Amino acid sequence: MTAGGVFISFEGIDGSGKSTQARLLADWLEGQGRDVILTREPGGSPGAEEIRKLVLEGEPDRWSAETELLLFAAARRDHLERTIRPALAAGQVVICDRFADSTRMYQGLRSGDMRAKVDALHDLMIGHEPDLTLLIDMDPELGLGRALSRGTGEERFESFGSGLQARMRAGFLALAKEFPDRIAVIDGAQPVEDVAEAVQAVVAGRLG
């Protein structure tokens, strides 16, 4: 674990329920007496929240994958400097709804194979991974339907359709095999309470 604190991220395709599970985990850990910060990406700091509007709203072709990569990296760097690192240094548990794995998928796979560029920029400007990543796995069609029904105005990536979501799901599962010590896969098709219990079991095992 990170010296001083613990960094946990949630990943998954749109509509997988990861945001709900992140909130439930934060509540559970606080009930265990842990000092918890719940944050999100893109966002999590004032500057990063401004960038969030740029990348999640508007037409699907508003940005190229390359431009998106730079915007997400800028948001993540600000988030890391102003929120994540100070919280970890203070010994807090940081729970983040998405982190670098989402960029590896959404920008790394959206336009050809940009994964090498994503990883190179991450190594250069971010250089930090979560201690534990919980991947909430979900059928792409079901997840997309859930995501589109929210009507938040932040559906730019959902508007790319189920084909992108299917590629993202396959990519996330491949990442779990690539980083088995960090990424735990949770079946998101279960009832919310059962997913939460599975998440808690994994976290309890890591935190001791």
Score class of each variant (00 low, 15 high):
88 L>A: 07
88 L>H: 09
89 A>R: 13
90 A>I: 07
90 A>E: 15
91 G>N: 08
91 G>I: 05
93 V>A: 08
93 V>H: 06
93 V>W: 07
93 V>S: 08
94 V>I: 11
94 V>F: 10
94 V>D: 14
95 I>A: 11
95 I>F: 12
97 D>M: 05
98 R>C: 13
98 R>H: 14
99 F>T: 07
99 F>C: 06
99 F>A: 04
99 F>Q: 03
102 S>Q: 01
102 S>P: 01
102 S>I: 05
103 T>M: 10
103 T>D: 06
104 R>Q: 03
105 M>S: 01
105 M>Q: 04
106 Y>K: 08
107 Q>H: 06
107 Q>N: 06
107 Q>V: 01
107 Q>I: 02
108 G>C: 11
108 G>K: 07
110 R>L: 13
110 R>F: 13
111 S>M: 04
111 S>T: 09
111 S>F: 03
112 G>H: 01
114 M>T: 02
115 R>I: 15
115 R>M: 14
115 R>L: 15
116 A>S: 03
116 A>L: 02
116 A>C: 01
117 K>G: 07
117 K>Q: 15
117 K>V: 09
117 K>S: 15
117 K>L: 13
117 K>A: 15
118 V>Q: 14
118 V>I: 05
118 V>L: 09
119 D>A: 11
119 D>W: 12
119 D>F: 09
119 D>H: 09
120 A>D: 02
120 A>T: 01
121 L>A: 00
122 H>Q: 12
123 D>T: 02
123 D>C: 06
124 L>N: 04
124 L>V: 02
124 L>Q: 11
125 M>C: 13
126 I>T: 05
126 I>L: 15
129 E>S: 09
129 E>I: 06
130 P>V: 02
130 P>T: 11
131 D>G: 02
132 L>C: 06
132 L>W: 05
133 T>K: 08
134 L>N: 03
135 L>G: 08
135 L>E: 08
135 L>R: 12
135 L>S: 11
136 I>Y: 03
136 I>L: 10
136 I>H: 06
137 D>Y: 01
138 M>G: 00
138 M>D: 01
139 D>E: 07
140 P>N: 01
141 E>K: 15
141 E>T: 14
142 L>M: 07
143 G>C: 01
143 G>D: 01
144 L>A: 09
144 L>N: 07
146 R>Q: 08
146 R>G: 09
146 R>W: 02
147 A>D: 07
147 A>P: 05
147 A>F: 00
148 L>W: 08
149 S>Y: 06
149 S>E: 10
150 R>E: 03
150 R>K: 11
150 R>H: 05
152 T>E: 14
152 T>M: 06
152 T>P: 04
152 T>R: 15
155 E>T: 06
158 E>S: 15
158 E>W: 11
158 E>P: 07
160 F>I: 13
160 F>D: 12
160 F>P: 00
161 G>C: 07
161 G>P: 07
162 S>L: 11
163 G>I: 09
163 G>V: 12
165 Q>S: 10
165 Q>W: 08
165 Q>M: 13
167 R>F: 10
168 M>P: 00
168 M>E: 09
168 M>C: 14
168 M>L: 15
168 M>R: 14
168 M>K: 11
169 R>Y: 00
170 A>M: 08
170 A>T: 12
171 G>Q: 08
171 G>E: 10
172 F>N: 09
172 F>D: 10
173 L>E: 15
174 A>S: 09
176 A>K: 11
177 K>R: 15
177 K>F: 01
178 E>V: 09
178 E>I: 06
178 E>N: 00
179 F>P: 00
